[in-house]
Amino acid sequence: MNVGETALKSRESRVKTLWGRLKRHKYLYLLMIPGVLWYVLFHLIPLYGIVIGFQNYTLASESIFSNEWVGFDNFRYIFESPDFTQILWNTVYMSLLKMVFGFFAPIILALMINAVTTGWYKKIVQTVSYLPNFLSWVIVFSVVDVLFNNYTGVFKQIFTALGWDYTDPTTSESSIIAFLVISAVWKGVGYSAIIYLASLSGIDPQLYEAAKVDGASRWEQLLHITVPGILPTCAIVLILSVGGILGGDFEQIFLFQGDNVIIRDMTENFATYSYRVGLQGFQYSKTTALGIFQSVFGAILIVVTNKLAGKFGYEGIW
């Protein structure tokens, strides 16, 4: 028995050659087949499809991949188009606004929830604030419409009852940007607060005990224990959010744009532009070139910000 076991072990440890290890794990490779297939079909082949950006693909083209090569003509066209600076600005501007407000709001909410000592109250507030995150933008948009529309909207009724003028903020050029930011914060604030709540619960309670004994006020405790305690988490979240600055949201923006051309020009981002001009306007090659630009710079941003976040203790998902 002992001898057999030793023999087995030495056989196992001898399997060090590559071929041996490959053979040993053949069943594991079998398990990977569906995943590898997915990567080939839905990553590699579409990735190869970026050749469209360097070719002239039209509706009449018979093959996706073999059309007339035009070099960087599509890129030149896109960069010289006034649309480009507009959507680049729109995307970055909207991301920055969402980043700033979407950064502070969850921290404040988490601090407020953390200060609640009544268990059931805390739970209810948390439960209620997370919910919108799990609803689609289409649902949120429908709810917003019923609240804010110019005809039967709830706010219209309230304003009329008070004798004030009312304009629908979702269709007015002066307030649409603020409304997009507010609705995004409303939808995500509770869920984004979770990470800070976890970080807050990681702070050693003894620190607070000690501070109380020393006579520190609640404000002083917040300033000198709580805030330093969650600062690394805040830094990481902020840095990582910079990485997504070129990735504008499609669903929210496209829904709220509706048919208003002025609002569309103000909010059009890479995703909505690619959909409208690329898919609906059949400008496949030009919007592919735009997509390549977005992906390359987006990836550089993500890599840089991840590295930077690593300096603050972010371990990444690896």
């Binding site: 990553h43 579409p46 996706i64 592919t288 997509g291 992906s295 987006g298 993500i302």
Partner: peptide, 20 residues
Amino acid sequence: FAMLFGGGMIPTYLVVTKLY
């Protein structure tokens, strides 16, 4: 790499609808 670089909206759409 695949998390950072994909085909993007248009190439993916064309591959899924025209090729598949």
